[in-house]
Design a binder for these strands. Structure first.
Length: 210
DNA sequence: TGATGATCATGC
DNA sequence: GCATGATCATCA
C-alpha cells in the first residue's frame, strides 16, 4: 500500500483521474470529497462511507491533506463526528483515538484547479507520546464540556490541537440534548478536527524520521 | 491571511 | 439518519 502511494507522488490528479475514467471537477465547491475518493480508488482502499478503517486488514486510515508548496496545510482536517448522545467514557476507548492510531497521509500540493494539483510523498504516521498526550488532553477537556452539558462554552476556539466544530448539512442540522441545567436545548451537530499546525508538525516529524 | 462556523455530495 | 469524504465563505 505504501509503495502504491509512493508511486503516485509527482502525478497530477488529472493523470490519476484519467486512469479511472474520471474527469476532474472545475472546483471542489460541489465535490468536496472528490480528491479523497479518487485517492481511495487509486490505492485500492475500501469503498467510502463505512465505519471502519480504509484498509481494514492493516488498520490504516487514509487521509488527503491539502498543503501549499512548503508543506503547510491549508485547512484543518476532519477526523470524526461527535455523537450528540455522548462520547466514549475514556480516551482509550474513544473513536477519535482509534481513527488516528495509524494514518496514511497523502499531501495534495497546490490550490489550482483540482486536476492540476500534485500528489506529494505519502507519510505513514502514528502519534508519538507527545502527540497522543496533546490529543488526549484536548479530547478530555472537550468531552467534559459535552458530557457536562456546558454546550454554550463549546466553540472552535477551544483545543490546542483538536477542535470541536459544527458539522452537518447546514446550521439547522441539530439534535435535542440536555444542557447543564437539565433543560432540553437544540444543539448543532459537531465533529472533531485537527488544527493545521498539528498536521503540519506531524508531517515534518514523520518526514524527518522516515 | 488565518480561523471559525457553514456547507456539499454520496452510500448504506 | 449518520457515516464517509472534506472545502467553502466570511469576518476579525
Amino acid at each position: 500500500m505504501l509503495d502504491r502511494a509512493y508511486a503516485l507522488s509527482g502525478l497530477t490528479l488529472s493523470e490519476i483521474a484519467r486512469r479511472y475514467g474520471q474527469t476532474p471537477p472545475p472546483d471542489l465547491r460541489r465535490h468536496k470529497g472528490w480528491i479523497g475518493q479518487l485517492l481511495e480508488m487509486a490505492l485500492g482502499a475500501r469503498a467510502a462511507s463505512r465505519a471502519e478503517p480504509d484498509f481494514p486488514h492493516l488498520g490504516v486510515e487514509l487521509k488527503t491533506l491539502p498543503v501549499d508548496p512548503t508543506g503547510k496545510p491549508y485547512e484543518s482536517t476532519f477526523v470524526c463526528t461527535a455523537p450528540p448522545g455522548g462520547l466514549a467514557p475514556t480516551w482509550e476507548e474513544s473513536w477519535l483515538r482509534r481513527k488516528l492510531s495509524c494514518v496514511l497521509w497523502i499531501p495534495i500540493i497546490g490550490r489550482d484547479a483540482p486536476g492540476d494539483r500534485v500528489v506529494g510523498g505519502a507519510v505513514r504516521w502514528q502519534p508519538d507520546v507527545r502527540e497522543e498526550q496533546s490529543l488526549r488532553t484536548d479530547w478530555e477537556a472537550l468531552r467534559a464540556l459535552l458530557v457536562g452539558g456546558r454546550l454554550d462554552e463549546i466553540s472552535g476556539r477551544r483545543g490546542a490541537v483538536l477542535q470541536l466544530r459544527p458539522k452537518g448539512a447546514n446550521a439547522s442540522d441539530t439534535s435535542w440534548v440536555l444542557d447543564a441545567d437539565a433543560n432540553w436545548v437544540q444543539e448543532q451537530h459537531r465533529a472533531f478536527y485537527l488544527r493545521p499546525k498539528f498536521t503540519q508538525e506531524l508531517l515534518t516529524r514523520a518526514l524527518r524520521t522516515q
